[in-house]
Design a protein around this nucleic acid. Sequence first.
DNA 1: TATTGTTATACTCTATAACTATA
DNA 2: TATAGTTATAGAGTATAACAATA
Lengths: 154, 154
Amino acid sequence: MNTEPHPGEPEQLAEDVRPAILAIELRTAIMRTSRRLRTEASGDLISPGQYAVLAHLHYGPLTPRELAERERVQAPSMTRIVNLLAEQGFVARSGHPKDGRQVLAAITPAGEAVLDEARSQRTAWLAQRVAVLSEEDRRTLSRAAWLMQELSGR
Amino acid sequence: MNTEPHPGEPEQLAEDVRPAILAIELRTAIMRTSRRLRTEASGDLISPGQYAVLAHLHYGPLTPRELAERERVQAPSMTRIVNLLAEQGFVARSGHPKDGRQVLAAITPAGEAVLDEARSQRTAWLAQRVAVLSEEDRRTLSRAAWLMQELSGR
DNA sequence: TATTGTTATACTCTATAACTATA
DNA sequence: TATAGTTATAGAGTATAACAATA
């Protein structure tokens, strides 16, 4: 066992950019922040999975398969998410015009409304904390957000 | 519904540091990356929850309550996690010397070993991706990791 | 009485396997 | 046969409520 005491507040050290070290720091920070975002800043309108699907459908109808691929879940999981959204009236299903096997899910006006509201709830917690940072720090986070999108494969 | 097409590859635009916009971008990037880290880079030795507990205990024994607070889960959830770790021989429970109600959980040598191995598994995926970035980008991520730790409240 | 920890139970989310309908 | 979608079922993880032991 380590003899160091439990670490308290993190200190701002000179950045260590060795990939192995950076990966540990970055992974820890991302997992910790994601949990705060999920548990404290998700609102109670719709689940994170439902939110992500509505956010995709905002740009136009998609099939369950396409949604499953974008969200990296299996098809039955997406069926369930779309079912929940359909029961609440936030998406409407329709048959694919060319391929009778396929289904198209589209966001409804009620879905757009709940997406707007959920986005506000989800953003408020983080926006408040980000607002007190310096503009330089905000630029760092903005650039980092882009880098993380790239890292996570797209 | 939006008339824009579904967005494809993200483009590197001038950073928008308005808190509300930055919060949306950052939240999206963090949630997406955290899911990749969880589903593809967690290894199969121990669950994320078990890993986090071992990482805490690396610095010394803690009570279940302290662990629950640090991990922001309820006490019964932590009982379950500690049970799983104890069954595998990765932590050992002992009575608190001063307070008979309390329990102290300590990491075992086997726990240290699995922690090491799990850390390697978890870090490898991210380290590989981070290694191909420029040093400037790695510095950005390092600084961002520190900022995210601060944002997420500690 | 209040606090620590556990047990009992239920809920959410996701997965795999099996099934139906269409291509 | 292969593909899209669904249904059935199971597993992991967490939560609340109730209980036991100690302060």
